[in-house]
Amino acid sequence: MLIPHPLLGPRDAQEFTYLGDASLLNRPDGMAEGALPAFCDYVYLRDNPAGIHRELWFHEQGDRSWLVVTRNTLTHEILGAELARDVALRRQK
């Protein structure tokens, strides 16, 4: 597969390590009330869709950026990729 790196252009998937669902970006607040059930969901529950999936890839043999990639798990078509850092910063706003 080719991952369209937002800064470097298309890079072969061989350069990357795959982590999983981008919902991992939504880490609950560990000091808040009800943190334990929130963390159980965060750690264990996944939608695992057959279709469009937002997921985290690490450009290990590249610029060591984490990317959020939108990929169709059925066709492997990749609809886009952005720096996970940007996604995470937007989430905070």
Binding site: L56, A84, A88, L89
Partner: peptide, 17 residues
């Protein structure tokens, strides 16, 4: 290797601020 990856994940994805 895995811990470095994990640290970058924490830095870029969890606490980018």
């Amino acid at each position: 290797g895995p811990v470095y990856r994990h640290m970058e994940f924490a830095r870029q994805c969890l606490w980018p601020e």
